[in-house]
Design a protein around this nucleic acid. Structure first.
Length: 513
RNA sequence: GCGAGAGUAACUCAGUGGUAGAGUAUCACGUUGCCAACGUGAAGGUCGCGGGUUCAAAUCCCGUCUCUCGCUCCA
């Protein structure tokens, strides 16, 4: 455990709270931890489940035309060829860090040689009136002389040794020369922004069956939506769905990110909540706007403050290979704005790609209008883990009570892992027995927590840290009039209500479970 | 990937060659009339890992791993 100054870093404080209360913590910790893997403890899994259940409910219960699906994580390898992920995720690329444009490596080599030849032409004209230039005619420290000498050295080495020099060796020299001396992006024109070629292999690769060979290679899905695209016709036909309709799925996806960062914000294993909405061509923008509004409201319903949310529209040149129009909902994390969800126009890219690759018909026939077409897809794709991080970051509060710092999570009651605590003020005088009875009555229908240990203040604080919104305390007045104290997490205010009304009180406050 | 720093109890840390410690947290019992009270006690540690030097290593040396910060990167 590294020592660092946590006193002023809100993220560090949130991470510490998550570990202290067993909400989220480093996975495989007894072996020193694996980078970027986290486990969700008892309260963490409740919070995560609450968020995903609210999403599921919003999608499937509130919409007749949206149905659920749980597709496989490992799909046929050809899926990823057709979807473009193998090509886009696998080849070496040279990337411009300014405009983020990636140039395929083989294209880039051609560009490099073109630059080199152009340069030599210019030099040879200047020096030699168009005659072939010799290295000695170039100034000692010119980059052209250096690259030329190195290539000649290679040729000489090949001649003397008989060892064949591959074109890769020469390529390396030329690429190095271009990156060092003429590093300019052909798309945006920025200078010095091209990064050395690297292989982007973002899919987790594994093998189907015990034999490892080229034929058995399989991939863990890098996005959940492909399963929806493969299954959409059977879902549509078996459920007699008519365009527009949607298919919702919650599941894990895996990406071999180059780097991971910011706690559970970017991890290699993560959960997506995706709803793919199948619409008639030409109606896309109407539905994009519809879902933008719907999805925005979802985050408000989780209790996230609206001023911490914003829309970000992807500029055309940054769009993913499948997207035509793309909007992201971003949250203002302590470390900056970060994407929570994308509302994207995927057009008919996916269905057409799978039709072509599989040879299976992927069109929809509209019985009403007698039209046959590939539906266009409006995608809403949310990250569950980062949504939970946003919810936690948004709920984290510190205040001061009687000179003592209090840390609490102002979670929406719908999200809170425990809805109410049940405490006897003290153990004696029969209070414990009444508290126990109330607790036994509530649990099983509502998540509640019983505690009798330590002072009442300490018990409240423990509940504050996991965001329990209500505290029921059984005191001596309970013996007289059957009322208990309800204590609110955020304001610390109290009221008294009849002990038989606690269940309905909670259900009223929660609105839903 | 590069540079710097850090790894000792669940947490925060002290401990410069000679019996591994404190505070907080946890648990038990007592006490306790509403916001981290108190008393007594208990449990909890391969000092990141491996090797070396030494009569003796948490401490010195070498290697290694992990984490943090800054660059870099981030479908």
């Amino acid at each position: 455990m590294a020592k660092n100054n946590k006193s002023n870093d809100p993220m560090a404080k949130l991470v510490a709270l998550c570990k202290r209360r067993g909400i989220v913590f480093q996975s495989s910790e007894i072996y020193g931890g694996v980078g970027s893997t986290y486990d969700y403890g008892p309260y963490g899994v409740e919070i995560k489940n609450n968020i995903s259940r609210l999403w599921w409910k919003e999608m499937t219960l509130n919409h007749d035309e949206i149905v659920g699906l749980d597709s496989a994580i490992i799909l046929h390898p050809k899926v990823w060829e057709a979807s473009g992920h193998l090509k886009e995720f696998h080849d070496p690329f040279v990337e411009c860090k300014n405009c983020k444009r990636r140039i395929r490596f083989d294209e880039f080599i051609k560009e490099c040689y073109a630059i080199l030849m152009r340069k030599f032409n210019i030099i040879s004209k200047a020096f030699d009136n168009g005659e072939l230039i010799k290295p000695s005619q170039l100034s000692e420290d010119s980059p052209e002389r250096q690259v030329m000498e190195r290539i000649l050295e290679l040729a000489e080495f090949q001649q003397l040794s008989g060892i064949k020099i591959t074109s890769d060796d020469a390529d390396e020299i030329v690429i190095e020369y271009v990156l060092k001396n003429y590093n300019q992006c052909s798309t945006c024109g920025a200078k010095g922004t091209l990064l050395p070629p690297r292989e982007f292999n973002l899919m987790f690769r594994t093998n189907m069956g015990p034999v490892e060979n080229a034929d058995s290679i399989a991939y863990l899905r890098p996005e959940t939506c492909q399963g929806i695209f493969l299954d959409w016709k059977i879902v549509q036909e078996s459920n007699r769905l008519k365009v527009p309709f949607g298919i919702a799925q919650i599941g894990k996806a895996f990406r071999n990110e180059i780097t991971t960062s910011n706690f559970i914000f970017r991890t290699r294993e993560f959960s997506q909540m995706e709803m793919q909405y199948f619409v008639k061509p030409g109606e896309t923008s109407k539905w994009i706007n519809h879902w933008k509004e719907q999805r925005w409201n979802y985050y408000l319903s989780l209790g996230i403050k609206e001023e911490n949310l914003r829309w970000y529209e992807h500029p055309q040149e940054k769009l993913a290979h499948y997207a035509k129009e793309a909007w992201d909902i971003e949250y203002q994390f302590p470390f900056g704005w970060g994407e929570l969800e994308g509302v994207h126009d995927r057009g008919d890219f996916d269905l057409k790609a799978h039709q072509e690759a599989s040879g299976k018909d992927m069109t929809y026939f509209d019985d009403g209008t007698r039209e046959r077409y590939h539906p266009h897809i409006v995608e809403t794709s949310a990250g569950l883990n980062r949504t939970m991080l946003a919810v936690l970051a948004d709920a984290y509060r510190e205040d001061e009570q009687a000179g003592e710092q209090r840390i609490y999570l102002a979670l929406d009651p719908k999200i809170a892992p425990v809805k109410a605590s049940v405490f006897p003020l003290v153990k004696k005088g029969g209070l414990r027995e009444i508290a126990r009875a109330i607790y036994e009555d509530l649990r099983g229908q509502i998540p509640v927590f019983y505690d009798e240990q330590g002072s009442i203040g300490k018990r409240y604080r423990r509940m504050d840290e996991i965001g329990t919104p209500y505290g029921f305390t059984i005191d001596f007045q309970t013996l007289e009039d059957n009322t208990v104290t309800v204590r609110w997490r955020d304001t610390l205010k109290q009221e008294r209500i009849n002990k038989d009304r606690l269940g309905t009180y909670l259900l009223e406050k929660l609105g839903t479970l």
